[in-house]
Simulated assay, not measured.
Amino acid sequence: MLFAVIFTDRSGQGTLRAEHLTAHIEWVAAHQDVVLVAGSLRSEPEAIPRGGLWVVDAASKQEVLDLMKSDPFYTCGLRDRVDVFYWSKALQRKVLV
């Protein structure tokens, strides 16, 4: 089952994000079998990220929530809000590189 996960970071935490970025990227790479797509969300290309987005392949919403709890961005307290949505892919072609 596919899920879209939208993270909103705590305001004013760019330094905290930067401190944990390498560990977060390594964590995402180690979980790329289930975290199919991951990236930051910004208001402008060069702005400090305000959150992130994942597309996750998991058996249940609870599995997504349990997985997220081991992400360094979650464990360091960066995340303010997390929304997990069931996602239905509309196009069957690969659209991401």
Rank of each mutant, 00 (worst) to 15 (best):
R10V: 15
H31D: 04
H24Q: 02
R81V: 06
G52Y: 01
D71K: 03
A30T: 10
E44F: 04
G12L: 11
Y86G: 08
D57Y: 06
A59Q: 12
W27Y: 08
W54A: 01
V84P: 04
L78T: 03
P72K: 10
D66E: 14
F73P: 02
L67G: 02
A4M: 12
V64G: 03
D9L: 05
L67N: 02
E26P: 01
V37E: 11
R42S: 09
S88G: 08
A18M: 07
S11K: 15
L16N: 05
V5Q: 03
L16E: 13
D80V: 04
V82R: 02
Q62K: 03
L91Y: 07
V64M: 10
S60I: 09
T75S: 14
T15G: 09
L67F: 02
S60P: 04
K69R: 15
E26V: 06
D71F: 00
W27K: 00
T22C: 05
E26F: 00
R50Y: 05
V64C: 09
P72C: 07
A18L: 07
D71A: 05
R50N: 13
R79L: 08
L78Q: 02
E63T: 11
D80W: 07
F7Y: 14
I25A: 13
S11Y: 12
V34M: 13
W87Y: 13
D83E: 15
F7K: 02
S60M: 11
V55T: 08
L96G: 05
D66H: 12
Q92C: 08
T22W: 04
S11W: 09
I6M: 12
R50K: 09
A58Y: 03
F7L: 15
V55K: 05
L96W: 06
